[in-house]
Amino acid sequence: MLIAVVCVLVSAVPVAADDDVPLIADMDIEALLEQELSNLNVDDFYLLEHLIDIDNKVKDQQSRMYGVRDEANRIFESFGAIETQILLDRQQSETVLDKAFEKVVRTYNAPAEPGHEEEPVLADPPKDVLLGAATRGDLEGVEMIAPASIPQAVDPWPTDEREFEGPSVLVLLLEELERSQANQAELRETLKDEILALGAQLENIEESENELEAAIRGLRAELVAINAREIEWDPESITPETIILPSSAPITSGWGRRWHPILRKMRMHYGTDFDGARGSPVWAAHQGVVETATYMKDFGRIIVLNHGNGFSTLYAHLNKIRVKYGEVVRQGQRIGDIGSSGLSTGPHLHFEIRIDHVLRNPKKYLPY
């Protein structure tokens, strides 16, 4: 049997002191289980259904955890791909920046080469132009007069005649960086989806854990009820502080004012509701005498147990009553089945407790 169930079953084994609790590893689990199961009555074999339910929940939890692990691995792979791409981008960016700084430093630190400035050449004064000679009437040496020269535009910056083969390396690097950023954006979107999926799976696991916890708690309550039947209580030692849970179902509604779903108005709720399946067992919270076993308009099928000294418990909305008026019942004895009789919207057990004949909040005394 699975470990969780083993832990539940052996919890009923008597232990010495809190500081001397035996370890499961030190026990003969199979022998103890065989001994404990041999003490069950035929009516107690509904426990097998709960054991199967717990086993199925553990298996389901395991399969969901495998799914979470696979999803987490995919997320880690996406993180790795993004991290690798960012590293490459960083390396290329550093390369471009280093080369740019190196070029700037070389340009500003290069020394001027002395001795290459050309001395101005003194040229003979040019001959007079034709217009000047004509105004002076000096045309004797007209054949010697040279026309004014046409000035030519001079480009002071020499042209580099070299041609690059292919596009600029810097342009290529920038284009590659753009592609890298686009890929990273796509990976990030994928990563977001994977993280959302992982979150949903984790929520499913949490829900599964809550269901498993409820199933284990319910089985523990059933085992406590079974063991309680073996105890013969002294009437003077029966107190509200020593009651057990009347049902293994989870509590869904407690003491206080609430909206009544049938009467459609605010109304005081003087008990605790256990949301169980129809036909689930209802146990006597303590040893007592059946004071009421009848049908009422509001409560439907109802049982009231008198435990003595003004202490009593009430069980309402039952599907079936298994005891009779005046009968003495043991703590943990099955006295009825959960139902939906009376003013009820669904199967549940309504449980009340009176101390000194006064209604009290059951949650203060229930070992829940």
Results as ranks from 00 to 15, higher is better:
residue 2 L to Y: 14
residue 2 L to G: 10
residue 19 D to I: 15
residue 20 D to K: 11
residue 21 V to R: 11
residue 22 P to K: 07
residue 29 I to K: 10
residue 33 L to Y: 13
residue 38 S to C: 02
residue 38 S to P: 04
residue 45 F to Y: 09
residue 48 L to W: 05
residue 49 E to V: 09
residue 54 I to G: 05
residue 55 D to R: 11
residue 55 D to N: 12
residue 63 S to R: 08
residue 64 R to A: 05
residue 70 D to T: 05
residue 73 N to T: 07
residue 75 I to D: 00
residue 78 S to N: 07
residue 79 F to E: 12
residue 86 I to R: 09
residue 88 L to T: 11
residue 90 R to G: 15
residue 93 S to C: 06
residue 98 D to M: 07
residue 101 F to E: 12
residue 101 F to D: 12
residue 103 K to T: 13
residue 109 N to Y: 11
residue 117 E to R: 15
residue 121 V to D: 05
residue 122 L to S: 15
residue 137 G to L: 08
residue 138 D to P: 04
residue 141 G to L: 10
residue 144 M to A: 01
residue 145 I to T: 02
residue 149 S to T: 10
residue 160 D to P: 09
residue 163 E to A: 13
residue 166 G to W: 13
residue 169 V to R: 08
residue 181 Q to K: 14
residue 187 L to K: 13
residue 190 T to M: 13
residue 191 L to R: 14
residue 193 D to I: 08
residue 197 A to H: 07
residue 198 L to I: 06
residue 208 S to C: 09
residue 209 E to I: 11
residue 209 E to S: 12
residue 209 E to C: 08
residue 218 G to V: 02
residue 223 L to P: 07
residue 227 N to G: 11
residue 234 D to P: 00
residue 236 E to T: 12
residue 237 S to L: 14
residue 238 I to H: 13
residue 240 P to H: 10
residue 247 S to H: 02
residue 249 A to C: 00
residue 252 T to E: 02
residue 255 W to P: 02
residue 265 K to Q: 09
residue 267 R to A: 05
residue 272 T to D: 01
residue 272 T to V: 15
residue 273 D to C: 05
residue 277 A to T: 10
residue 283 W to I: 01
residue 285 A to Y: 01
residue 288 G to Y: 02
residue 290 V to K: 02
residue 291 E to T: 03
residue 291 E to I: 00
residue 292 T to V: 14
residue 294 T to C: 03
residue 296 M to R: 09
residue 298 D to F: 06
residue 320 K to T: 07
residue 321 I to S: 04
residue 323 V to P: 06
residue 332 G to D: 08
residue 341 S to Y: 09
residue 344 S to Y: 04
residue 346 G to M: 11
residue 351 F to Y: 10
residue 358 V to Y: 05
residue 359 L to E: 06
residue 362 P to R: 03
residue 363 K to P: 01
residue 366 L to S: 03
